[in-house]
Simulated scan of single mutants.
Amino acid sequence: MKKALMSLTAAAFLMLPVMAQASTWKIDPDHSSVGFKVRHMMVSNVKGTFHKFSGTVKVDENDLAKSSVTATIETASIDTGVGMRDKDLKSDHFLDVAKYPTMTFVSTGVAKSGAEGLKVTGNLTLHGVTRTVVLDVEGPSQEVKDPKGNVRRGASASTKIDRKDFGLTWNKVMEAGGVMVGDEVTISIEVEMVQMAEP
Rank of each mutant, 00 (worst) to 15 (best):
V185S: 06
V120F: 12
E138H: 10
G109Y: 08
L118D: 07
K112H: 13
A115R: 13
M193T: 14
Q195V: 00
E138D: 14
T130D: 11
D162Q: 13
N123P: 11
D183P: 04
T121S: 15
L168V: 05
M103E: 02
K99S: 08
M174V: 14
E192G: 06
R153E: 01
L95I: 01
K87G: 14
S158C: 03
V151D: 07
T132G: 07
A98G: 00
D183E: 15
F94I: 00
V137F: 03
K172A: 14
K99P: 01
D88M: 11
F166P: 00
L126E: 01
F94S: 01
E138P: 05
F105L: 08
G177S: 09
G109C: 07
K160V: 12
M103D: 04
V185T: 07
M174G: 08
V97N: 00
S107L: 07
L124R: 09
G114S: 12
K145F: 13
G117P: 13
V129G: 06
V106C: 04
E192C: 03
T104Q: 11
Q142A: 14
V173S: 14
T186N: 13
V191D: 04
A115F: 09
D92S: 08
P140L: 07
V120Q: 10
S91M: 10
A176F: 10
G128M: 05
R163D: 00
G178D: 11
F105E: 03
T130L: 11
L168C: 01
E192A: 09
W170T: 06
G178V: 12
H127C: 00
D88H: 15
A98D: 10
S107F: 09
G122A: 12
S141F: 03
R153W: 01
H93R: 15
L95M: 06
E116K: 15
V137S: 05
T108I: 08
E138Y: 05
I187W: 02
E190I: 08
G139W: 06
R85F: 14
L89Y: 02
E138Q: 14
P147I: 12
R131A: 07
T132K: 15
R153A: 03
N150S: 12
V129F: 09
V191F: 04
V134Q: 14
N150D: 13
G149A: 08
V179K: 12
D162W: 04
D183R: 09
S188E: 15
E184K: 15
K145L: 15
V181Y: 03
A115C: 06
H93L: 14
V173A: 15
H127E: 01
I161G: 00
A115H: 10
A98S: 08
S141R: 03
V191P: 04
E116T: 15
